[in-house]
Design a protein around this nucleic acid. Structure first.
Lengths: 251, 251
DNA sequence: GCTCATTTGTTCGTATGTATC
DNA sequence: TGATACATACGAACAAATGAG
């Protein structure tokens, strides 16, 4: 987000903050605060223009900017709505697997191998920017291509942010993405991710679950998922078997 | 790019193509054709509006859309300019290396290990969508972190698209990115990339150059770089050592 | 299937402010 | 300072999509 300079006493010329930008900011803050949640509609242009004493053109510009940034979407004749995760990023279907360029994507099925509350972990708590004593949820999943396990993922989530996530039926996790669940159940949209990617040998647990030897090279991906205000909410470790299929990315 | 439906005889209602969209398309085609090259300016709003008989607001909208899509950039008081690769994508600094999240990025230096003309390679020619008989340039580079080699990259480029690339001084490749060189010398901007990522053991050559054993897991990345009109122009294989640093990505 | 109110989409034009050279 | 070009702001008019009656 662009930071505008603030008025100060000894400066003669300061770029004034445009009116469309102020309105934009007001709407955005409402979204982030949760007053407006994904799928709900915001007031029409005309009413916004009235409410904030700007012209329709200016209100439209504010809205259109937020549409461009992915926070809103509009349907002609219907209204303007708050966008959710899936609408903001078309490439958020993680772990697309292909054998070669031009191959078709391989379908994966998910098996939830367990979810439990654990005590804190130093590095994880630090990544998630929570106090070292805060408890965590540990969520283990295995992804299968046909019958063979190809990915083993361990996710860590702060208990404080996701109360009762361990009470959600297992089948739910096996039918939706974790992003979808988190957005749907807790109203936290995913804004962006960071990843560290490397190759290594599997951990003992990963080797057992992926049914490979200890000296089999695997892809190791660490990920941090962020929501509004650059706040991390999930840290994840993925162990990927990339013998007959590889991870595909498009930039 | 959005495809609009075309007028046909037996259809009653066809969505008309907006005027701003037509103008946008005209400008875009000029950029893609090379009539407008990166850094050069396009006519001011007023003149565009006049030339194409639209209002200033409509011309502005066309331009602003292209700015949003990254094809143009504007400087108040100065003009509107054609953007180049580096301006379009802030994340195109490939291979950012970090040890952990929150670490600083590690600097890499490049050594050009060789560039030569070779005969065709079946799979490569097919990926680059050129005839099986077309010759290729093969470009080998090694990236060093301090004194230790960490990445070995082999690039393949169609000879037809890059005549004389093997005559460019070696130092040039060691000071600029391949993207920069290709854009600067041949006017081909990079629009997007596709990657396949996996873990494996190194090839004999990779093991030798990276000074590792044959049973050392490495990251293997295949990449296709595309320019306008979804035309691939480079196929690349990268072998990355990810022991003390990993590849960082931000989405 | 039609009409109507609502809402967004497109287009126009004008005026004024601000940055660049 | 002035000429040029982009940025902001206003508002009007009509088109097109939606959903309800």
């Amino acid at each position: 987000m662009i930071q505008r300079q603030r008025q100060t006493r000894n400066v003669k010329k300061v770029k004034p903050i445009p009116r469309y930008y102020r309105l934009q900011d007001i709407i955005l803050r409402n979204i982030e605060r949760g007053s407006l949640s994904p799928g709900s509609s915001i007031p029409p242009e005309r009413r916004l223009a009235e409410s904030y004493s700007v012209s329709i053109g200016t209100a439209k510009k504010a809205i259109l900017n937020l549409v461009n940034e992915g926070y809103l979407y509009r349907i002609q004749g219907k209204g303007t709505f708050v966008a959710g995760t899936t609408l903001r990023r078309d490439s958020l279907r993680y772990y697309r697997f292909l054998g070669k360029f031009e191959d078709k994507e391989k379908d994966l099925s998910v098996h939830l191998a367990g979810i439990r509350k654990i005590s804190s972990l130093n590095t994880v708590n630090s990544y998630l920017r929570i106090r070292p004593t805060q408890k965590l949820f540990e969520l283990k999943r295995i992804f299968f291509s046909k019958e063979t396990p190809v990915v083993f993922v361990v996710s860590y989530l702060p208990v404080i942010l996701f109360p009762g996530i361990d009470a959600i039926p297992v089948s739910h996790f096996e039918q939706k993405t974790l992003y979808g669940t988190i957005e749907e159940k807790f109203g936290l949209p995913t804004i962006y991710n960071q990843e560290l990617i490397g190759a290594r040998f599997p951990s003992a647990e990963a080797a057992r679950l992926l049914k490979i030897g200890k000296k089999h090279p695997i892809l190791f991906i660490e990920m941090l998922a962020f929501t509004y205000r650059n706040r991390p909410y999930e840290y994840r470790r993925a162990y990927c078997l990339t013998d007959s299929q590889k991870i595909f990315r498009h930039y």
